[in-house]
Amino acid sequence: MKWLAIASFCVAAGFLIFGAVALRPFGAPTLKEMDDYFNRFSQPEVAANNAVTAIVFDYRGYDTLGEATVLFTAVTGVALILRRTKK
């Protein structure tokens, strides 16, 4: 059990160290094709000046639908817990 713990710690630590070493230099962009696409086409395609709104409500509408569902679930949970109960 002790050796399993040590081995898993070494694997996790090695993974983190490898990730830290393999980082790009500070400030260098990693994957900028999608950024360039949004910068270039959010105005002509969606006709919105605010690229963030264009992404949130158009390109990733599913994400916003899930966010609205999360809010609805939170309100439902609060209303379920905090209700008048007969004693």
């Binding site: 105005q43 006709a47 919105a48 000046n49 709104t53 264009a54 409500f57 158009d58 916003t64 609205a68």
Partner: peptide, 25 residues
């Protein structure tokens, strides 16, 4: 209304369903 690429003063009558979705949300 269409929106050109680049900086522009902004027009409220643009962006299709986005303002309606903004109001709904």
């Amino acid at each position: 209304n269409p929106v050109p690429y680049g900086p522009n003063p902004g027009d409220l009558n643009t962006a299709g369903t986005l303002p309606l979705m903004n109001w709904a949300v």
